[in-house]
Amino acid sequence: MTASLRDPLDAHLAELDRSLRGPARARRDIVREARDGLDDAADAYRRGGVDPHTAARLAVRDFGPVAEIAPLYQDELAAGQGRRTALLLAIALPALMVGWDFVWQSGLAPGPPAPAAVKVLARVQDVAATTIAAVSGLLVALTFRRTRSPRRVAAAAMVTSMVAVVVCGGSAIAMNLVNASEAWLRFTTQPVGLSAYVVSLGVMVLLNVSALRTLRTLRAARKDDRHRVE
């Protein structure tokens, strides 16, 4: 395909790419799909006898302004980012629970019996993690279904992730503060205990980052809505 044909198409696709917010792979897939459609439309005009540059401009016209098209794609991106967040929750929290149970039961991080307050907080954390994982599994399933509002599912995944960080992360911090001396000993002298802390922190960071990315995707969708109204 000649440069004279591709230039208007490339400019339009570049504008579309800049307008979208969401997972990089999903954005690339959307732009690739749009490129295929534009190329087919331009080729059809060329076969009808239209010169390449005019064919490209007509294909772009038929495709529609980015301001009108981007919000439709943004809903798809919001659903994709929400799916990622929910899937991370559904996998990471149960895995973290199993990992810590293994650390305690294996004797790799020995220590005296935990205070009563720590046991209560641990119970709260277990119940919260189990509930959040179940909700996340449901949200993952919903992201694969056509719904009237994929943004609501994405927003639910974002809120669930934030709740997980606050409740599970907060209870973990509280447990270590209540039993600070043992926590410090485990952190400084037990490689397995240190590894468990590092992994737990990493999971909380990933959940927070995924929630923030979902929030940015939803904000982009709302921004597109405002532009369409204006």
Rank of each mutant, 00 (worst) to 15 (best):
I91F: 00
V60A: 13
R28P: 05
M1K: 04
R84L: 04
G111R: 03
L201A: 12
A59L: 07
R46S: 05
S210M: 04
A172S: 13
A78S: 09
R21A: 07
G82I: 00
V159F: 05
A128S: 07
S195A: 13
V205Y: 06
I91D: 08
Q125D: 15
V209P: 11
P65G: 03
L139Y: 01
V165G: 14
Q74N: 12
A164G: 10
R228H: 13
T143L: 07
A117V: 15
D62F: 11
E182F: 04
E230M: 10
G169I: 07
A141E: 15
V103Y: 03
R228E: 06
A67W: 00
G49Q: 05
R25A: 07
A128M: 14
G37D: 12
D62K: 12
I69S: 11
E15D: 14
T147D: 07
S210I: 03
L139T: 14
A95H: 09
R226N: 13
A14M: 01
K119Q: 14
V140H: 15
V153N: 14
M204H: 15
V199C: 10
V50D: 05
A55E: 00
S4D: 09
R213L: 05
T217Q: 04
S161P: 07
R47S: 08
P52D: 01
R46Y: 00
E182T: 02
Q105K: 10
A220P: 15
G202P: 14
L215N: 14
H12D: 13
A59H: 07
V229M: 14
V165A: 15
L89W: 00
A116H: 08
R27C: 04
C168S: 13
V98P: 14
T131P: 15
L108Q: 14
T189F: 06
Q190W: 01
Y45E: 14
W100G: 05
I69A: 09
R145Y: 13
V103I: 05
L108A: 08
A129P: 10
P191Q: 02
L13Y: 03
L215T: 08
V163Q: 09
R146H: 09
R21G: 01
M162W: 03
V66W: 00
A42M: 03
R27F: 03
A196G: 11
G64P: 08
D40I: 08
I132S: 13
L139D: 11
D126F: 15
L218T: 10
F144T: 11
V229W: 08
L121C: 12
D75R: 07
P112Q: 09
R84F: 00
D126T: 12
P191V: 01
F187M: 02
W104C: 05
A41P: 09
L58H: 02
N208Q: 04
A14L: 05
H12G: 09
A11M: 01
Y45P: 10
D51R: 02
G193C: 02
R28Y: 02
R219G: 14
R219F: 12
D224P: 12
G22S: 12
V163K: 05
W100C: 05
V50K: 05
A154H: 04
T54S: 07
P191L: 01
A79Y: 07
E230D: 14
H227G: 06
P52S: 02
G137P: 15
Q81C: 06
F102E: 10
L87A: 09
R25M: 03
G193V: 01
E68I: 08
L38F: 04
